[in-house]
Design a protein around this nucleic acid. Structure first.
Length: 314
DNA sequence: AACTAGCCCTGTTAGC
DNA sequence: TGCTAACAGGGCTAGT
């Protein structure tokens, strides 16, 4: 559930600590943390040990640490990280005690900050680390936030730019939405259309834009799409400014601290509580194996494409 | 080609 | 009290 704001908080925390740092040692404690790595744990350790980290970059929910070239034949690679639902990247003192669900520990030596441990911990093991090659972006713009390098890891190449990316193409996004026959919330969650949005911010943006989550994406008028995109950006930026959303101990920055955005949620997780706009209780419905939270009064289905879901129309 | 259901996983909580 | 079931859900794969 770390979404764009939470992952960006992690990236920003890592950036000063790892940029220019030398990887002194790598320990893989649980190989389930390497499900996206094509080789063995020993291969992962061997390919990372002795290298220097050049930056900390992010696109949507994907994070990567590009490595400085090790030599003319070394190729250009990066450590790719996805936090999944419960992954954490933590900065710890060297020799710090194991975290509760520690999976990988990377010991680094930074020219200014000295020795640090970068710890990957993950309770539910949906997250992963991998060594991956960098490939050019089709539009030649920076691959992600945090680096000007116009390349991304191969595992990120099919992921769309996120709405806060300066190279995000609004026009192409509107066109794609217009072609989609599936529910608008499903399209918002499709990382190949727009990245960085998960269940929390999808519900929040749809609430803010007053759009029913099951409205067919292709039926939305252009002005509704524009409103939605603006609200997506607003909610992501506000969450980022508040350090991200935390419901339990899983969503934390590199120091293990939680964000404050949970206090600002209007719909997500507020089933039965009054809509902050109109007072009607927030509804919760099961939708593509997830929960959707919305206001039945403020968020009506679009005219002409409605399917009766039992919601009274006034 | 476009779209969707199912699967992976574990700690917490609700219900009986 | 102790057990079981539901729930949290991102991204990939296989299926229609």
């Amino acid at each position: 559930m770390p979404e764009l704001p939470e992952v960006e908080v992690v990236r920003a925390g890592l950036e000063p600590a790892v940029t220019g740092a030398f990887v002194a040692d790598v320990e893989v404690l649980d190989e389930r943390a390497l499900t996206r790595h094509p080789g063995t744990p020993a291969d992962f350790e061997g390919r990372l040990r002795g290298r220097t980290i050049a930056a900390a970059a992010r696109r949507g929910k994907f994070l990567w640490l590009p490595l400085a070239p090790a030599g003319p034949e070394s190729g250009d690679s990066a450590v790719v990280a996805h936090l999944g639902m419960s992954g954490q990247l933590l900065l710890r003192e060297p020799g710090a005690p194991r975290e509760r669900h520690e999976r990988v520990r990377i010991a680094v030596e930074h020219p200014r900050h000295g020795e640090l441990a970068v710890v990957f911990a993950d309770q539910r093991t949906f997250g992963s680390l991998a060594m991956d090659a960098l490939v050019p972006t089709p539009d030649a713009a920076a691959g992600g936030f945090g680096s000007a390098d116009p390349r991304v890891p191969t595992q990120v190449a099919h992921i769309a730019r996120d709405p806060l990316d300066p190279a995000f193409a609004d026009r192409a996004f509107r066109a794609t939405l217009g072609r989609k026959d599936s529910a608008v919330k499903r399209v918002l969650l499709d990382q190949t259309v727009v990245s960085g949005i998960g269940n929390i911010y999808a519900d929040e943006a749809l609430w803010a834009a007053r759009i029913h989550p099951e409205t067919r994406a292709g039926s939305l008028p252009t002005r509704a799409v524009n409103r939605l995109l603006a609200e997506v950006r607003a909610v992501l930026e506000k969450a980022l400014a508040e350090g991200g959303t935390s419901f339990d101990a899983q969503y934390v920055n590199v120091n293990g601290q939680a964000g404050y955005f949970a206090h600002s949620l209007n719909a997500y997780g507020r089933t039965g509580e009054p809509c902050p706009r109109c007072g009607r209780p927030i509804a919760r419905v099961s939708f593509t194996n997830r929960s959707s939270h919305f206001c039945p009064r403020c968020q009506r289905r679009s005219r002409g494409v409605a399917v009766d879901d039992g919601t009274p129309r006034v």
